[in-house]
Amino acid sequence: MLRTRVLGPAERQPAQPVLKASLDLAARLPRLVLEARRVSASVHGIHGRRRSGPGETFWQYRPLVAGESASRIDWRRSARDGHLFVREREWEASHAIWLWIDRSASMGFSSSLALASKVDRALVAGFALAEALVEGGERVGHMGLTRALASRRIVESLAQAILADRHGGDADLPPDQPLPRLAEAILITDALTPAEGLARRIATMASSGAKGHLLLIVDPIEETFPFSGQAELFDLEDGLSLRVGDAGAWGEEYRQRLQAHRDAIREACRHAGWTLTLHRTDRPASEGVLRIASLIAASRGPGG
């Protein structure tokens, strides 16, 4: 009998020791952060909108320009080498990129064909994009968890916020609120929730004219449904299970319904002017990250 299982938040202490590390987010995060940094190093060409102006975030030191007020001089920095320097802060307008990383129970699934679980791949992709975007001059935050930051420690900030979030594993949809008009969203999810609900959230976020990108994380087995004979299917989000006498006979109908589900999500993205990217977990994480990065870079135009 074939079995497929979805790893849920209730299974923090699994019966099988071999699964314990895969469920312990605190133990996995250092490895995921390192992998994300490796992936982000391959991303180039994102030119952001950072410039000096009123704000709270330190950006850079620059030499004092003749005619500027002496009150702008950073005397501690200037004392190091005898030249006068000004401490510039980043201009913080409403431009920001907002991540939302799905960590619901279905994201814990990983088949024997995958290189990683969906949630691990989503975290790596989100962290890698955040670091690449900040390096390119953007401000990045996680919806409902952090403010938008231009910090060089953006990955650590996101990881700490996610680790401290006690309810993130219960939400399979992003927050139901519009984004600022000049903001941009990146939703990273398996979208295994009714398409109508996700479509409504996308419409709400885009109602102000905000741009967005949906990165759909899928396991190869979810795409192909390669089962035959008897199978037992589990849905740990709803606590349901289903015994199937002839799984092979279900395959074609399953794939048709999956395609209809994807078409509805694709139409919601098209209607909002958003992009949709499909990423399988049997492929390198860099592929999905580079695709989203190229879409964001293209939206900036030749001059960023």
Rank of each mutant, 00 (worst) to 15 (best):
R266I: 00
L278F: 00
E237D: 10
R243K: 11
L258F: 14
E252Q: 05
L233Q: 02
P284Y: 01
G273I: 03
E253T: 08
S241K: 02
D235T: 02
W274R: 03
Q230G: 01
F234C: 03
H271D: 01
I265V: 12
Q259F: 02
W274P: 07
H279W: 00
R262Y: 12
T277N: 11
E237N: 07
Q230F: 05
L242D: 02
H261Y: 14
L233P: 03
E223P: 03
Q259E: 15
R270Q: 05
G229P: 03
L242Y: 12
R283Q: 06
R255L: 12
L276R: 08
A249G: 11
R257Y: 12
L242H: 11
L240T: 14
S241M: 08
E267Q: 12
E222W: 04
G245W: 13
T281D: 02
R280A: 10
R270D: 06
A264R: 13
Q230P: 03
T224L: 10
H271T: 06
T224G: 00
F225E: 05
E232Q: 07
P284V: 00
T275Q: 14
Q259S: 14
L278E: 13
S228E: 15
G273Y: 08
P284M: 03
S241H: 04
V244F: 07
D246Y: 07
R243C: 09
R280D: 05
L233K: 02
H271F: 10
R283A: 11
S228H: 15
D246G: 05
D235G: 04
L258I: 03
D263W: 05
R243F: 15
L233M: 09
L258E: 15
A231N: 07
G229L: 04
H279V: 01
P226R: 10
G239R: 10
L236C: 14
A247L: 09
P226E: 12
T275R: 09
E223L: 12
L240E: 15
A268W: 10
D263G: 13
I265Y: 06
R243M: 09
A264Q: 11
V244S: 02
G239Q: 12
E223V: 06
G248V: 11
